[in-house]
Structure formats: structure tokens, C-alpha cells
């Protein structure tokens, strides 16, 4: 695929005029790892389910390489959505579901599947509804990594996973991404786990996109300035301040943009702002909207 574009996407709530998604415009390019961030209820899952044609938008369209995705078998075969709903029969054994998905996708990587089953120690003879939350996620992860699709969306992939399995997941994701470059969109609350892994960041808040940029760009213009309150205030004056914290006489100002030309007064420290902090600050800021 070349790119997946979302144009003027709106989606209303079931009853009522409130909108879950408001005029979303975003493009996802090939072979990148996107981090999709936002609070609970911000609209991330809705967006992903519309892209996969699980649900319909109220207006707007989703285009994969120029073709509308809706009811398009060709486009849909290139998209896979790993989601929190249970799409496969609950009473069926894992092995049987795996076999089913295999038959649905030509080019499904059976070797990788077997390798992952061993790594995660997933009991494929178990029935899906008897698995723990973590292992349900693991089954879904395995399928998502083995399907031969060019656009994979992962909705909270590490839900319920213990530290060991989370580590395995990220390693296998990287390896699979390196072996078969394709686009991943990962939606998660645990931002710090993937903040170095993502090449691009898309943030949704209250149904709107409030940030859409490459991770490198964001990192190069997100700073935390701390020191004595008056010096910090003077230094950050006129800059795009997205958050402030005070502790007695000391203050930390979070800014986005280029650092000013002036010299940093002594006693004042300038640090890179982590993505995690940046996102929290941006979410707080757009609370008022």
C-alpha cells in the first residue's frame, strides 16, 4: 500500500447530536509505526473500527491508495484490525481458530505463528473463553502479526499482559516489522512503552486530532524548562506553553516549539520533554475545548 487517507470523517453518537469523531483528517503512510494516543473515550477505537469498515462514519471517507475502503473486498483484505471485541467463536479451541484464519488469509505466516505460540507459551488446545485476559490478547496478537496485511491496527495489544509477555510482544513486533515492513498503528495508554518505538504520533482528544507529527519532530521541539519561577516565566514568555507545574518557588514550564535565541539564565535547566509528559499536557490543555 502507499497510504491510507482519512478525509473529513465524522461520526455521531448512536442517539443524539454529539459527535464521537469531528472532522478527522489524517494520512497513514507505508511502513511506519504510528502511536495513536488519547484518553478513554476519545475516539481511538471508533476511528480504527471505521477504517476497518466494522462501523460506518456519519460523513467523510477512508481511502486506501485512493480507493474507498467501504464494502471494498480488495482494500479490506489489506487491512487488519486487532480489537477488544471477540470476533472469533468463543467456544472454539485456539488451534481451530488459528486454522480458520489461516484458511481466510493466503500468505498467512504459519511458521511465525508456531514460533510465537511457543514463545508466549500459549496453550492452543484451550478454548478461547477459558483463556485469561492476557492470553486472549496474546492469541489476537499472534494472528495480527501473522496475517499478510499491509496495514495493521492494534487496539491496546498489551492489555492484561505481564511484563515478560509485553517484552516478548515488542521484540517480536520489531522483528516482524523488520522482516516484513508494513504499517502498524498502535493504540495504547502505556505511552512510555512505545514512545521510542513509534516513528509518528497521532493524538486524539474529544474526537479531534490535536497532534499529528513525526516522533523526531515532536522530540526536537518539546522542552521542559525548570528553575526559579520568575526566571522560568521570563524565559518562556511568548512561547507556546502547554503546561506548568510549581513546587514552591520553583516552576517547570512545558513548551513546544523552538527554543528562544536568548541565553539560558543560570539556575534554569532545559530538558527534553518525554512524549508521555507531552501527551498528558496536550490532553489537559484541550480539556477546555
Amino acid at each position: 500500500m502507499d497510504k491510507l487517507e482519512i478525509k473529513n470523517l465524522n461520526r455521531n453518537f448512536k442517539f443524539g447530536k454529539q459527535k464521537v469523531l469531528k472532522n478527522i483528517n489524517v494520512s497513514f503512510l507505508s511502513n511506519k509505526i504510528y502511536g495513536l494516543f488519547g484518553e478513554n473515550g476519545a475516539g481511538k477505537s471508533t476511528l480504527m473500527s471505521i477504517i476497518a469498515d466494522y462501523n460506518f462514519p456519519t460523513s467523510g471517507e477512508v481511502l486506501l491508495d485512493g480507493e474507498n475502503v467501504h464494502d471494498n473486498d480488495n482494500a479490506l483484505s489489506k487491512i487488519y484490525y486487532m480489537n477488544q471485541n471477540n470476533m472469533y467463536p468463543k467456544n472454539e479451541k485456539v488451534a481451530k481458530t488459528f486454522k480458520f484464519v489461516q484458511s481466510m488469509y493466503e500468505g498467512y505466516d504459519v511458521n511465525l505463528q508456531n514460533k510465537l505460540v511457543k514463545e508466549f507459551q500459549l496453550n492452543t488446545k484451550s478454548r478461547f473463553n477459558k483463556l485469561s485476559t492476557g492470553y486472549k490478547s496474546i492469541m489476537k496478537i499472534i494472528i495480527a502479526l501473522c496475517v499478510p496485511c499491509e496495514f495493521i491496527m492494534l487496539d491496546e495489544p498489551t492489555l492484561g499482559l505481564d511484563a515478560r509477555n509485553r517484552d516478548i510482544f515488542y521484540r517480536e513486533l520489531i522483528e516482524s516489522y523488520t522482516d516484513h515492513p508494513r504499517t502498524f498503528v498502535i493504540s495504547t495508554h502505556i505511552i512510555e512503552e512505545i514512545d521510542k518505538l513509534v516513528s509518528d504520533v497521532v493524538m486524539i482528544n474529544n474526537g479531534k486530532i490535536i497532534l499529528n507529527d513525526s516522533a523526531d519532530n515532536i522530540r526536537s521541539k518539546a522542552y521542559s524548562i525548570n528553575g526559579p519561577a520568575d526566571l522560568v516565566d521570563e524565559y518562556v514568555h511568548g512561547l507556546d506553553i502547554i503546561g506548568k507545574e510549581s513546587l514552591g518557588q520553583y516552576e517547570t514550564g512545558h513548551i513546544m516549539g523552538r527554543l528562544p535565541e536568548k541565553e539560558i539564565p543560570s539556575g534554569v535547566e532545559v530538558n527534553k520533554m518525554e512524549l508521555q509528559k507531552l501527551i498528558v499536557n496536550l490532553m489537559d490543555r484541550s480539556e477546555g475545548d
Binding site: D53, D73, L76, I79, Y80, V101
Partner: peptide, 16 residues
């Protein structure tokens, strides 16, 4: 609904 789940998660459109 069960059939729909199976088909949409396998990339089959509603026409299909």
C-alpha cells in the same frame, strides 16, 4: 451476527 463477525474480521466485505 456471528457470521458477520467471522467475515468482517477476515477482510470480507458485506457484499461478499
Amino acid at each position: 451476527y456471528y457470521l458477520f463477525n467471522l467475515s468482517i474480521s477476515s477482510g470480507i466485505s458485506r457484499n461478499g
